[in-house]
Each structure stands twice: as structure tokens, then as C-alpha cells.
């Protein structure tokens, strides 16, 4: 499988004079079609990394490849046909004066024909549950509703790589589930769609294809969830938690009850403990 994103020795600092480096020599790769969770405590550099990947910030040094193309200031427009980010604060990304206008904004910029644009706005506003609010202005919407609009705006563009930077943090659990299902549906339709989720949801991370952990701007761990979360002490030493299912498995192990390695969900663990 070829790579969707490759990062080599990336460095960045917001204020080079103060010498505080936000991203320190970070390297990793993401294959096409993977669902990757990027986790780390607040201030670990996750959002900065998302901005660097979309070239909203310019690296101090290092290389970023998106879909095989090395990103630089000359090909930003081309790169942004491939990669898009939905950020946490929806107020900073609401551009249109109405929901409809906001979802259409990116499409207009790409000169999508009017008929097609109307169709896409309708489709994605419906998929995120905002089709009844098309004429509403942002000040009439809740934080969660604005996040849904921002998500629709990015999904409508048909990008190959989507990054959600805590993009569902203002949604209720049902809303978060709806959006996750939508992403999985889209991935089913297009197996090459790559999805990067910047999240504090450890349970979500445990079910990803790959987990990357940042700590103080450095890559702390990278790998499949089973390997990454296996080292409970290492995870907890940087203020992160391990998934509930692993907490139960580890606590039972300490009491001498072994459970099979391949159990990843509480449903599977319950089945096992009930002898099913």
C-alpha cells in the first residue's frame, strides 16, 4: 500500500527567537486508507502538526509528503485538493453567512458547477443532520451544530485525506457516533480515504489502524494499538489513560486471570468472561 502522508524530521517553533520548539524532529508515515489516531496531552503539539500537514504553518525544517508529493509553498493549492482539516473551534472556520453558504464555500473556491454544488450541499448537510438549518446564520447555532457544518464543508469536497482536530468535541455522544458512522461509510465507499483523528478518546484510538502519540512536541510512540497500549506504565507516565477493556484485562491478570490477547472490545471481553 502506498503512503498518504510521510513526515521526515519535522521541526517547528512559533517563536524561533524564544527557542521553544513546538514540534521536534518528528517522523512518521500513514498508509492510504488507514484510520489513524493522533493522541497526546493538551499542548503536546497535535494541532500544530495538523496545521503543518495542511501547510497552514510552514515547517522550520523537515519534509512533508502528501500523496507522494513533497509539500512546499508553491504547491499548496494542489495539496489542498487532497488534504483538509476540521478544527476544534467552529467559530474560527465559519465563513458563510448561512449554513448553506458555509458548506458551499469550499466548493465555490474549487469552481464546482452550480447544479453539482447544490446537490453536494444538500447531500452533506443531510448526512451531518443539518439539512433543516440551511438558512440559519451561525449565531443561531450551538457549538455542536457549527461543528457539524464545518464537517459537512470538508466532507463535501471529496478529499482523499481528512484530518479531524477534535472536530466533534462539542457534540453529544449520539452526534459523535453519527459522525463516526458517516466516516466509516465513506471509507467503505472509498477504501483509499485516509482519516486522521486528533482525539482524547482513548477508546476510539484503540480501535484505529494505527496510533501516534506526541509528547512535548516529540513523537513518543507509533504503532498498532495493541502494541502501543500494551505498556501501561509508559502511557500513564505522560498523563494518558489506557482503554477500559485493557484496564480490566490488566487488573484481572494481576489477580491471576488471563484473557486472550485478541480481545479488543468490552463486548468481546464480556462474551469471554461469560463463557460464550
Amino acid at each position: 500500500m502506498s503512503l498518504a502522508i510521510e513526515v521526515k524530521n519535522l521541526n517547528f517553533s512559533y517563536d524561533s527567537e524564544e527557542g521553544v520548539q513546538t514540534i521536534k524532529n518528528v517522523s512518521f508515515s500513514i498508509e492510504k486508507g488507514q484510520y489513524v489516531s493522533l493522541i497526546g496531552h493538551n499542548g503536546s503539539g497535535k494541532s500544530t502538526l495538523a496545521k503543518l500537514l495542511a501547510y497552514l504553518l510552514e515547517p522550520a525544517s523537515g519534509e512533508i509528503y502528501v500523496d507522494g508529493i513533497r509539500v512546499n509553498e508553491k504547491n499548496i493549492r494542489e495539496i489542498r485538493q487532497t488534504i483538509g482539516v476540521v478544527f476544534q473551534n467552529p467559530d474560527n472556520q465559519f465563513i458563510g453567512s448561512t449554513v448553506e453558504g458555509d458548506i458551499a464555500f469550499g466548493l465555490e473556491n474549487r469552481a464546482v458547477p452550480r447544479e453539482k454544488m447544490i446537490e453536494l450541499v444538500k447531500k452533506y448537510s443531510r448526512l451531518v443532520g443539518m439539512d433543516k438549518f440551511l438558512n440559519k446564520s451561525p449565531d443561531e447555532l450551538s457549538g455542536g451544530q457549527k461543528q457539524r457544518v464545518a464537517i459537512a464543508g470538508i466532507l463535501a469536497l471529496g478529499l482523499k485525506i481528512i484530518i479531524f482536530d477534535e472536530a466533534t468535541s462539542m457534540l453529544d455522544p449520539e452526534g459523535v457516533e453519527d459522525i463516526k458512522k458517516l466516516i466509516f461509510e465513506m471509507k467503505k465507499e472509498d477504501p483509499e480515504l485516509t482519516f486522521v483523528s486528533i482525539t482524547h478518546d482513548i477508546e476510539e484510538a484503540y480501535l484505529s489502524d494505527k496510533v501516534i502519540i506526541l509528547n512535548s512536541g516529540e513523537k513518543y510512540m507509533e504503532g498498532v494499538p495493541e502494541d502501543v497500549f500494551a505498556d501501561e506504565d509508559k502511557i500513564k507516565s505522560i498523563g494518558l489513560d489506557i482503554p477500559f477493556v485493557l484496564q480490566v484485562k490488566n487488573a484481572l491478570k494481576k489477580k491471576g486471570i488471563e484473557t486472550p490477547k485478541n480481545i479488543r472490545t468490552i463486548e468481546e471481553l464480556s462474551n469471554y468472561l461469560c463463557g460464550k
Binding site: D172, P173, E203, F244, I266, L269, S270, N271, L273, C274
Partner: peptide
């Protein structure tokens, strides 16, 4: 549509199983 804490979700699963 309230999310049950994982602890209670797991207990409910065990009960049902």
C-alpha cells in the same frame, strides 16, 4: 441518548451475557 459510563456499559453487557 445519554452515554452510559463504560463501567456501567460493561456491567450491563455481563448481565445480558
Amino acid at each position: 441518548s445519554l452515554e452510559i459510563p463504560t463501567l456501567f456499559k460493561f456491567i450491563n453487557l455481563l448481565k445480558n451475557d
